[in-house]
Design a protein around this nucleic acid. Structure first.
Length: 541
RNA sequence: GCGCCUUUAGCUCAAUUGGAUAGAGUGUUAGACUACGAAUCUAAAGGUUACAGGUUCGAGUCCUGUAAGGCGCGCCA
């Protein structure tokens, strides 16, 4: 049991002796920011003062004599009723051995035996991925990594919209380019895709098939072009995502979801929730969370995108997932209650589906907003920006802020800042530790940590001990930025420690062994944390 | 008009989910390498937490109202 948990249990037992049952989760132990407030503190005397009909400080007076002091050096009451803990040195320093023993698994949560499906990116395969999707890709991937580390069984999934109108437009665009490349007259369709990628596809098509397509009948050619286009576009998307260190476990196709009359069966299942009005079919989502009923089949007999999406979500749940997470752009927020309503018609709780909204990123070029669209083909691609800025910097940047914040991405700054980027601050801490360990590799490590007494050493010990709690919190709140903030704090205490404590002293091998062990433990934690963000932990920079 | 998100230091963001003197980065100013990596460190300055009320031992955080910005409100996806 780690130091924070044992303090919680300690406090819980003290309450029990006083005749009050308190939930472990309701006891908050915080790491004191100010050293004059001890190492750790709890507000529980204030929080539960109502049990005792007296003021918080008096409650603290009651609790303190009941505490088990075996790992605590000193306790004091402060301010309005905080209880500050001053820990015995060895109870803090034993974390060194624990981290080194657990190594890559330090910080990991216990197996939860729960399956979570995280769906993200899911961009239409009609062009290259642009930077706008990068934030969702980074955050979705980080959430998946964090949840997996927390002990959940995570499946990363990509939904391919391969049955809608966009794909038809893609096929038409490819054919127009194909004819043009063959020197014939052809106009691009009105809703066509003008990017260079479509021209590339047309060229490749000519190499493989020559002029064969011209003689095909319309329906056959259309079907062929759709499949061909999807295959190539999706192939490049996957390739670029892989370069961004994002890989999926499952790809689901809308076409496959629609197969076997799945939609008709679903409508039958929805039964009384479906009604006809003005020639269209509506779903009575207002019976649940929505403020408006939604059309599922248009007057012309076509289904709206909402309908197969319902089938898709039901399909995911039928595969045995306990929870679904969708990572969506904030412009889809109207979609949340509608989808939850549909799932509630299946008897699911509204919370089986969590939708993580990613706020828009505004791209600035020379200080001016840069609007780009995929259709016109002038969008900046994910691939381009990765090459210019670097994957580590990109991922760190997107993982740095809460998903709900509207953020600006300044292209010029991103490039120029590369040596000034916060990611290097954290990576440098790791590289520095590696370097020290290399220099002192002949000195025997002392994992007892018994000689670590400097304030900057204590600070470091408390910070690495906190890691499992940070991971848990980041998982529960699906907030990668909490990991990023933590890494920054940790790196700060590393640099601070490094500057005031000389690690390798050949005249004091005992102390050196202690400090090298601390370096090793810290290095492990930084690496584990960076890994949750998909950012590398270099040994040299 | 309705709904969602946002508003905290000059700028970009935190604040352990209601706790102690609201913290980091960046920018500004002043210092620190003949020791393990100066992509670093140590300081200083910078705040009426958009505004007005309310709830309580205690509010940046919760409630009500106001203002500003973004995004939605389609038988598009």
């Amino acid at each position: 049991m780690d130091i924070l948990d044992s303090l919680k249990v300690n406090v819980q037992n003290a309450f029990k002796e006083l005749g009050h049952e308190v939930q472990l989760n309701d006891i908050i132990i915080e790491v004191s920011k100010d050293p004059t407030h001890g190492d750790y503190a709890t507000n529980c005397a204030m929080k539960f003062s109502r049990f005792f009909q007296t003021n918080p400080r008096a409650v603290a007076e009651l609790i303190i004599p009941k505490l088990d002091m075996s790992s605590i050096d000193k306790v004091e009451i402060a301010g309005p009723g905080f209880i500050n803990f001053y820990m015995k040195q060895d109870s803090l320093s034993k974390i060194v051995n624990e981290v080194i023993t657990k190594d890559a698994s330090f910080g990991a949560g216990e197996k939860k035996n729960k399956k979570i499906n995280v769906e993200f990116v899911s961009a239409n395969p009609t062009g290259l991925l642009h930077v706008g999707t990068a934030r969702g890709a980074a955050i979705g991937d980080c959430i998946s990594r964090i949840l997996a580390f927390n002990g959940y069984d995570v499946t990363k999934e990509y939904y391919i919209n391969d049955a809608g109108m966009q794909i038809t437009h893609l096929a038409e665009s490819i054919y127009a380019r194909y004819l043009q490349e063959l020197g014939m007259n052809a106009e691009m369709p009105e809703d066509g895709y003008w990017g260079d990628d479509v021209i590339d596809i047309a060229k490749q098509l000519i190499q493989e098939k020559g002029k064969d397509l011209i003689s095909m009948d319309d329906a056959e050619r259309m079907e062929f072009l759709k499949q061909y286009g999807i295959k190539l576009e999706l192939g490049r998307i996957i390739e670029h995502l892989k370069a961004f260190r994002v890989e999926f476990d499952v790809f689901s196709s809308e076409k496959a979801i629609r197969a076997d009359n799945a939609i008709e069966k679903e409508i039958k299942f929805l039964g009384d929730n479906v009604y006809q009005d003005d020639g269209a079919l509506f779903l009575k989502t207002t019976n649940y969370l929505d403020d408006k009923d939604r059309v599922i089949r248009k007057k012309d007999g076509e289904y709206t995108y909402f309908m197969p999406d319902i089938c898709y979500h039901v399909n995911k749940l039928s595969r045995g997932f306990d929870n679904l997470i969708d990572v969506l752009g904030a412009d889809h927020h109207g979609y949340i209650n509608r989808m939850k309503s549909a799932l509630m018609m299946h008897g699911y709780d509204k919370d089986v589906l969590h939708i993580e909204l990613i706020q828009m990123v505004r791209f600035l070029k020379n200080g001016v907003e840069f609007k780009a669209s995929k259709r016109s083909g002038d969008a900046i691609t994910l691939h381009e920006i990765c090459e210019e800025v670097g994957v580590d910097a990109m991922r760190y940047f997107f993982a740095m802020r809460a998903a709900s914040t509207h953020m600006d991405f300044d292209m010029d700054l991103a490039k120029e800042q590369s040596s000034n980027n916060p990611v290097y601050y954290s990576q440098y801490a790791h590289a520095r530790l590696c370097s020290v360990l290399e220099t002192g590799k002949d000195i025997k490590l002392d994992v007892s940590g018994s000689l670590l007494k400097e304030p900057s050493e204590t600070e470091l010990l408390k910070n690495i001990a906190k890691f499992p709690k940070v991971v848990e919190d980041a998982g529960n709140t699906k907030s990668p930025y909490k990991i990023t903030n933590y890494i920054h704090d940790l790196a700060e205490s590393v640099h601070s420690f490094y500057n005031c404590c000389h690690v390798i002293d050949r005249d004091n091998l005992a102390l050196s062994g202690n400090r090298l062990a601390l370096c090793k433990a810290t290095k492990i934690v930084i690496k584990n944390a960076l890994n949750l963000l998909g950012v590398s932990a270099p040994e040299h920079m």
